[in-house]
Write a protein that binds this DNA or RNA. Structure first.
Lengths: 259, 259
DNA sequence: GAGCAGTTTTGAACGCGTTCGAAACTGTGG
DNA sequence: CCACAGTTTCGAACGCGTTCAAAACTGCTC
């Protein structure tokens, strides 16, 4: 049987993916402890194999065999292979937020805090760079629940946006910034992260050094841009930008812009 | 600098037998007329079925059967199902450029010309919205030759960038614009189109009305932004932006900006 | 024609994700 | 202990994209 069964019992993570996990699993409710254990075993085994062999080279048959269950059983808990990713996705979001908070503590400069948050993501995601690129195509499917814009991703997205809110709140921002603009910034910064992720997925340099350089260069720019928005000539363009974000971006990413 | 068209990389044929040749279309050279006819027949049949049933519901067996050939034969000409898309992709790029040029003729205002070019794309692509979304996931794969950033997409990308160069050249731009910035604009505007495409793929409204509204709103903004770049306060941020684009964006999309 | 080298075509077979009917297990009430 | 309903597990089977060895065809020389 499976020799090195990862300790399926150390799931002490505090609800990294509570509600989302249910939606993603393709199953209603865990009825028994044994059932929950089987589910966890399959998930852990899958994640381990994904990291060892990559997403596409890990077959459902291999996951089932390694976990000591049948394929049918795996499908009983995860109605498709891609749903096995959601757990991974949720956990990474949680880990990133925790790590970024730790690193930001004590730093007051906005640009620095932003850079820390982004670099923290790169570090958190680094071990998965190879296979993340492989399932990026799944995430790009508009009809997939794994899309970062989908309803099913809402919890993870909210966690990330909340992190960027903290990035802002811990910063000494210039006074007299447009309050409405500041209100929108957490979501905009999350979009910035999405751009970085896009860049990262395509990055083939060692240790994704290119993406890291991209972050180092783009964060001070973002800070400068926000600062400049105080000037009068910016008034019209800032208003336009706000309108564009409110009317076209936020609704797409799940903020029900109730008018 | 001399940023002509795509004169930098005009490799008509790399090492024969190399992976690039295989990737391009799945086959090296058309030997006979009959061979070429078979290839065309398969491609046309595939495109028709894609539109009728969608990408994923169209099986290779169905394409072969409908075209009156064997599956193996289809694979002789197209080494994978996704390569059947490339022909479609190239044709659409060409049609778009032609249609946009026709529509722009006589218009001098930059914002208008830009909007025309983007709306033209939406109209050209409209018939394929449904199945385009289905193979968008394939295009999102960094390792796929169908990615808009891949080498194999270079010809189509060059055509599109060239179109945006014409959008600019036919416009009465404000004088005193930073020449280097203008030089970069065709590629930046192409990126704008990519963002619109991304929005479009996720758009589920009737006739993609939401994306159309997005274009109507974002193009005047782009024009205003470019105009504002003349002001002195913008000097540093414009320089930063140019650096960012030159060092991180253009290299990624195939402009070999070797330093 | 006959032989031959290259090109084109074929269809059975492979491995994959996924489905499904049925068996095995679990807990509860009689 | 036995039925019985619900939950969990099983593994054969299906349809798919893809591969491959062999057959069929083509143009050529003798």
């Amino acid at each position: 049987m499976s020799d090195g069964v990862e300790s399926a019992s150390d799931r002490n993570e505090p609800e990294s993916g509570g509600p989302a996990a249910e939606l993603a699993g393709g199953r209603a409710q865990p009825k028994t402890d044994k059932s929950e254990a089987t589910r966890a075993l399959i998930l852990e085994t899958a994640m381990r194999l994904f990291q060892e062999r990559g997403y596409e080279k890990t077959t459902m048959r291999a996951i089932a065999a390694e976990a000591g269950v049948s394929v049918g059983n795996a499908y009983y808990y995860f109605s498709a292979k891609e749903f096995l990713i959601q757990g991974f996705y949720d956990r990474m979001t949680y880990d990133h937020a925790a790590d970024a908070r730790r690193r930001m503590a004590g730093t007051k400069d906005f640009a620095e805090r932003l850079e820390i948050a982004l670099v923290s993501w790169l570090d958190t995601a680094a071990p998965y760079h190879e296979f993340a690129a492989q399932f990026f195509r799944t995430a790009a499917d508009p009809t997939s629940s794994l899309s970062p814009f989908s309803n099913e991703s809402h919890p993870a997205r909210a966690t990330a946006v909340e992190l960027f809110r903290e990035v802002l709140q811990g910063s000494e921002l210039a006074p007299k910034l447009d309050a409405e603009l500041v209100e929108l910034l957490p979501d905009v910064l999350w979009l910035h992260l999405m751009v970085v992720v896009l860049y990262w997925v395509f990055d083939r340099t060692d240790d994704t050094e290119r993406t890291r350089e991209f972050v180092r260069r783009s964060t001070p720019m973002a800070a400068r841009l926000i600062n400049l928005s105080r000037y009068r000539i910016f008034r019209p363009i800032v208003r336009d930008a706000k309108g564009l974000i409110q009317d076209f971006i936020l609704p797409t990413i799940g903020k029900t812009a109730v008018k």
